[in-house]
Amino acid sequence: MLKKIFNILYKYLKIDLSLKHLFLSVALYLVSAIYIIYVVFDFNEIYEFEIWISLFWIVILFVSITSISKSFFHESHNRNYYYYYLFSPSELIVAKLIYNFIFLLILFFIAILFYSFLLGNLFLSKHFFLLLFLGAFSISNCLTLISAISFQIKRNSVIIGILSFPIIIPILKILIDISKVSHINPSWNVIENDFYILILINIIAVSLSYILFNYLWKN
């Protein structure tokens, strides 16, 4: 099974490398969103940590929803049939989860690079990169099944936003809280509870994606 998952991951990677515009369009979306913030806000205003971090996570939210919806878009029906005969749904969903995680992680690092370049990197720390890692993990886990759901519907670009926003709000809230608190007091005790909830949400999301994708995939 592991071999097959790697096989799928390799295929996804090859498709993404051959269709460069997919990744580039998401990256451009990200860059222009950050640039809008740069234009609209004064640097002195953004100097406050709360605004800095909240705006950053909001940008991350929109970019991750756009990018994950794209990750299912580009699969044509023919290719889906091909996957259908070659792989089992559980292998597909695991591969998709891993792929989305890596994809988001790369995007997040581009985002933090560009964001700190334009709006100052005064608040970056070792903890923040760990948090970015955790954020990419939980957001990709939650959104993968939602994008699989909206893939089955026509006009899905609107649907995915509506379906994913309410589910992603709690995660975003926890992430923003952790990043605010850990900036003031970077000790484990303060963030312990929030961290456990995030892990719990991830466990629920991954296990349900794994179970429910079976039913979604069969036609």
Binding site: C142, I146, I149, Q152, I153, I167, P170, L200, A205, Y215
Partner: peptide, 19 residues
């Protein structure tokens, strides 16, 4: 299709509501 997709979403959403 409606029944299938909305059931999947319903289960997922309810589970995410618990925490």
């Amino acid at each position: 299709k409606k029944a299938k997709i909305s059931s999947v979403y319903n289960i997922f959403a309810f589970a995410m509501l618990i925490p």
